[in-house]
């Protein structure tokens, strides 16, 4: 393993059940680099959590190998456990204990030095704004408070690698934003972070690299920018108008700047690579024929568009969705 890699998966496969065999992870291989925020993105049931559970020694793979740092997960699970921090998808907080006691319990299990543990716990409670609730039972906490507590618990011992399985699931926008800030802050402390999510904006905002998973398979792995660049359609430009001159469309088409153009309900929808640089040229064509524009908007493709392009399905919806053309994503 080179110094740059911190996790390596080689043909990892996990099959559950004997009678009804379900292949949760199907021949997945990739590397995670030291210090990066690595996103595992995919719909529910794509195998993200199973992959995390294998890497965190909770379940053994059916075949293939996985290394965390230099340790193979099935042969040296104890060494792996010593360097990782995990925030599982489902809550594992002890609801009958207080916030402080929950952190204290894990501090003991994680071998955090007694002399620093108490200070560390208060530091984390402060980070989550839970200082005044330190001695309340977790069962009295809201979902967001519990989630934040669980996330800070995962890095109580300053692990080398942090696994966050759907960290912001079910959180309100404010709490999500706080969690994102925490993750970014941690990453500046050289912690490698592996994050699973099915929120595209979250992956796009946080991750250095994103791996798309679908039906247990790894279907693409790259930086968010490269993922988007790989889309054939490029950016999407919408130009509104009241009346259009019949010569505008052919002129734009002939300019060779755009990949496609269509007119629809007093709007021209143009697809082009590098939309920002072709837009002035398009505007000048409008001006040349003296066609007044009522609105201009430009959309960059989102990570969701990439997913749709790769799988032909939307990320949040189930099977049976018709493939949609690229574009139409959220403005960014």
């Amino acid at each position: 393993m080179t110094g740059e890699q911190i996790i390596r998966l080689e043909h990892l496969t996990k099959i559950f059940g004997n009678n009804h065999r379900v292949t949760a992870v199907d021949d997945v291989s990739f590397d995670v680099r030291k210090g990066e925020i690595f996103g595992l993105l995919g719909p529910n049931g794509a195998g993200k959590s199973t992959l995390i559970r294998i890497l965190t020694t909770l379940i053994a793979p059916t075949s293939g190998t996985a290394y965390v740092d230099q340790y193979e997960v099935t042969r040296e699970p104890e060494s792996v456990r010593a360097i990782i921090g995990v925030c599982p998808q489902n809550s594992t907080l002890d609801l009958e204990l207080t916030a402080y006691d929950n952190l204290d319990f894990y501090g003991q299990l994680l071998n955090v030095e007694e002399t620093v543990l108490e200070r560390r716990i208060w530091e984390l409670l402060k980070m989550t704004d839970l200082t005044d609730r330190a001695n309340s039972r977790v069962s009295t906490f809201s979902g967001g408070m519990r989630r934040k507590l669980e996330i800070v618990r995962a890095f109580l011992h300053r692990p080398l690698i942090l696994f966050l399985d759907e960290p912001t699931i079910g959180l309100d926008p404010d709490s999500r934003f706080e969690v994102w800030q925490q993750i970014t802050r941690l990453n500046t402390e050289k912690t490698t972070i592996i994050l699973t999510t099915h929120y595209m904006d979250e992956a796009e905002r946080l991750c250095n690299r994103i791996a798309f998973m679908d039906k247990g398979k790894l279907i693409a792995l790259d930086t968010p920018e490269n993922h988007k660049r790989a889309l054939p359609a490029g950016d999407l430009i919408d130009i509104g108008f009241d009346h259009i001159d019949g010569r505008v469309l052919p002129a734009i088409r002939e300019s060779g700047l755009v990949t496609s153009i269509e007119e629809k309900e007093k709007t021209l929808r143009i697809s082009a690579k590098n939309g920002n640089s072709v837009l002035p040229a398009i505007i000048s064509i409008f001006e040349k024929f003296s066609v007044p524009m009522t609105s201009i908007s430009i959309h960059s493709p989102s990570i969701e568009d990439v997913f749709i392009y790769l799988t032909g399905r939307k990320l949040d919806s189930g099977e049976g969705e018709q493939p949609q053309p690229a574009g139409g994503g959220k403005a960014s």
């Binding site: 909770l58 990782i84 599982p88 907080l93 002890d94």
Partner: peptide, 13 residues
């Protein structure tokens, strides 16, 4: 309750 999943990933023996 799944609480076990939390501490099984710690180095506790």
């Amino acid at each position: 309750n799944g609480i076990i999943e939390g501490y099984l990933v710690t180095p506790v023996k």
